[in-house]
Design a protein around this nucleic acid. Structure first.
Lengths: 362, 362
DNA sequence: CTGCTCTATGAATCGATGC
DNA sequence: CGCATCGATTCATAGAGCA
C-alpha cells in the first residue's frame, strides 16, 4: 500500500478513481453525489447532459434508470473500499435520496440512521406552491448488519447539552466568509456544505487518524475538516477549478493539537477496574454490607470480591440479577454502601480512583 | 357511482379492496403502510423494563423484493384511484421510506415535498449505539408532473404565524387520552398517528367535501379527522378489532360547522410560537370561543389558527385590532378563553408551552 | 385543590469480550 | 464457533398516587 494516496484530492472520474484503490482501505465515506434530477423543468443525466423531450413516463423511467445505474456503480465501489466496520454518509434531497437509500439497501449496506439537516436559513418557496424545502437528508449506514461500527455516543451527547443527539440537526447553510468564491466574487460551487455539518459527521463516526474518503469532493469541505480534526483524507473530483480551490483550502487549514482533539470517551473504552481491587485496597473491606437503592435487598462483601446473600454467591452483577430476577444487571450502579453516614453508589469508587494517581490496574 | 362507499371503513385487504373502487374517484390519499422494521431481539430500557415493540405479523416480509412487490401493487392502485389533480401522502421511517419513494417515482408520481415529522417526545436510544430516531418522513406527491394539485398555502402560513410552513414539522406523539386502548388498558394499535398530524395534512392539501382515502386505516385517525374537518372519507382495514374501534371513534366525532371550517387568506404577524399550533394540537380546538377581558367582544377559533367574528376574519392580533378599532393589538394578551370553568388569557398557552418547547423553527 | 414524587411508555432494525 | 460473563445505557409526557 506504499502508493496509497493519503491526504490528497485526486483528479478523475469518481467510479474509475475509486477502482484504483484497494479493498477495505477506508474507514469512513462522506458522499454528496449529484442530484441533477428534474431541475428547472429539464432533466439532466449524471454526466450533465440534458435529457430532451421527456414528458412521457417511459422516458422518465429511462432517465431514472440512468441515474440508478450510476448510483449503483459508485455505491458498489464505495462498499468495496470500506473496512468491515466502516460507515458511509450520503446526503441528498427528495429528488434523489429515495433512490440512493433503496440502492444502498439492495447492495447490502445496513442503514443506521437517516439524519435530517434542518436548515436554519433555507431559501423560501417563492411561488407559494409547496412547503418551504427546509431540509436535506443524510443516510448513515454501516457496510453490513454485522459491522461493529464506530459511534462516539458520549461525544455526541456532550455536543447536545448532555442529552442524546437526535436524528434532526439544526445547522445554518454555508454562507459568508466560509463560502468559497471565484475571481468574480460569485460562489465557486453551487452546493458547498457547511463545515459544521462535516464536523458533526466526523466527530460522530471516526477517530483520529481514520481515513475518510469523499468521492464527490467539490469545494473540499470534507478534506478541510478531516485535516482540521486530525483525520486522514482522500478526495476525488473531476473539475480542475474545484480541485485547485480545494487544495488551496486544505493547505490553509491547520490541524488541531492532540489536546484539542480529545473527545468525551465512551466508558466502555476506559480501563476496566475489577470490583475486587477495592476490597483488596480496603476501600470496601470484606464484610461490608451492600444494599440496593430502596434498601430492600442486601449482600455481604467477601474477601475475593464476590457477594453473598442467603445461599447465593456471585459477582456484583450476577447477584444484582439474581436478587431482582432480572436477566442481567450492572452491579456498579445497582449496589450502594454507607460511608461516614452517607449512602453512596459503589460506582463512585471508580470515579474517585480515576481522579487519584493511585492506580494499580489498567 | 351510486354504490360508492362514502364515509365508511371497509373491511378487506388493501389492494383487493382498492380494485373495487373506480378510476379517478379520490382527491387525496393518506397511507401509513407497514414499515418492515426487521426487529431482531428483545429490547430493554436501562431500568430493565421491556420495550413493547412492533412484532405484529403484518409488519413482517420475507425480503426486500417481497416488500417492494407489495408496495408497487398498492401504490399502482392508489395512483389509478387518484383524480388527475389529486395528491398522496405516504409516511415511513428509514426502514422503508426509501423504497416507497423510489417506487412512487417509478410509477409516475411527482414528489412535491418530503416532510419530516420531528417527534417532540421520541423514544430514546437505550443502548447508546445510534442517534435517537426522532423523526418519521412523509412523502407528499401529485399524481403526475402536470397535476394542478391543491396546496392551501395561506392556511399553512396562517398556521405558522404568517410565515411559510417549512418541510419540518414539530409535533408530539399520540399518547394519553388520545390513544385508543383495549379492554386491558393496553394500546389498541401499535402505531396510532396523532390527530395533529392528520389535521395539518388535510388542511394543507384538501378542501371541504374532498374524498380522502386511507388504505391502511388502522385506528381510524384519518377517518376521524376527515369527519371533523368536513371531508369525506373511505378507510380500508382488514383487522376486525381495528375496524370496530375506528367505527366507534368516527361515530363519536363531530363535524365542525361550515363557519368554523372556512380557511382563509390570513395577513401578517410574527412571534415565536404559532397560535395555530395550539389549534392543531387541540389545546384550543377549532370552534373555541375567545373573548376580551370584559367579555364584550368574542371570536371563534378556525382550524388554520385564524379567528372569525361577524364578517371579520384574521389572526389573533388583527382581530383584536379590528374589533377595538385600534391600529394594532397584541392578540396574545387581548384574548381570553375558558378552560374547566376558569377564564384564562391565551398567552398562558405559550407559558405552558415554554416548559415543553413546541416550535416549528429554531 | 396544590404540588410533589413516582411510574409507565413510545414504529427500535439498540454489545463486547474472553474462554 | 458457542456460551458465559461483564457491565453500559433513557427523554418527554401523561397520569396516578400521596401528603
Amino acid at each position: 500500500m506504499q502508493d496509497f494516496p493519503l491526504d490528497q484530492i485526486l483528479c478523475g472520474e469518481c467510479i474509475e478513481t475509486m477502482r484504483s484503490l484497494p479493498d477495505a482501505s477506508i474507514d469512513c465515506i462522506f458522499a454528496d453525489p449529484p442530484y441533477n434530477l428534474q431541475l428547472r423543468g429539464e432533466l439532466r443525466r449524471p454526466d450533465e447532459t440534458v435529457v430532451d423531450g421527456v414528458d412521457d413516463a417511459w422516458d422518465k423511467f429511462a432517465d431514472y434508470a440512468t441515474y440508478d445505474n450510476f448510483t449503483r456503480e459508485w455505491l458498489a465501489e464505495a462498499r468495496r473500499l470500506l473496512t468491515k466496520d466502516g460507515t458511509i454518509w450520503v446526503i441528498g434531497s427528495y429528488h434523489n435520496v429515495f433512490r440512493l437509500g433503496a440502492i444502498m439497501q439492495d447492495l447490502g449496506f445496513w442503514i443506521l440512521n437517516d439524519i435530517v439537516w434542518r436548515k436554519a436559513n433555507p431559501m423560501p418557496n417563492f411561488r407559494g406552491r409547496r412547503f418551504t424545502n427546509a431540509h436535506e437528508t443524510l443516510i448513515w449506514a454501516a457496510r453490513g448488519p454485522e459491522s461493529k461500527y464506530r459511534f462516539n455516543y458520549q461525544a455526541m451527547k456532550a455536543l447536545n447539552d448532555d442529552m442524546q443527539m437526535r436524528s434532526d440537526w439544526y445547522l445554518p447553510l454555508c454562507t459568508g466568509n466560509e463560502r468559497l468564491r471565484n475571481a468574480h466574487g460569485l460562489k465557486l460551487h453551487p452546493t458547498q456544505k457547511p463545515e459544521s455539518l462535516l464536523h458533526r459527521v466526523l466527530i460522530a463516526s471516526t477517530v483520529v487518524d481514520d481515513i475518510v474518503l469523499d468521492p464527490f469532493s467539490g469545494s473540499g469541505t470534507t478534506a478541510a475538516m478531516a485535516k482540521r480534526l486530525g483525520r486522514r483524507f482522500i478526495g476525488i473530483e473531476r473539475h480542475p477549478d474545484y480541485i485547485e480551490a480545494a487544495r488551496a483550502r486544505v493547505e490553509a487549514e491547520t490541524r488541531l493539537s492532540d489536546d484539542q482533539l480529545a473527545i468525551t470517551p465512551a466508558k466502555r473504552e476506559l480501563p476496566r477496574i475489577p470490583f475486587g481491587s477495592f476490597v483488596e485496597q480496603g476501600a470496601l473491606p470484606a464484610g461490608t454490607e451492600l444494599f440496593d437503592r430502596q434498601r430492600r435487598l442486601s449482600a455481604t462483601v467477601m474477601p475475593d470480591g464476590s457477594l453473598v446473600s442467603g445461599s447465593h454467591r456471585g459477582s456484583i452483577h450476577k447477584m444484582g440479577a439474581i436478587l431482582t430476577n432480572a436477566p442481567s444487571c450492572n452491579g456498579w450502579t445497582f449496589w450502594y454502601f454507607e460511608r461516614q453516614g452517607e449512602v453512596l453508589q459503589i460506582d463512585i469508587l471508580r470515579t474517585e480512583q480515576a481522579q487519584t494517581p493511585l492506580r494499580n490496574v489498567g
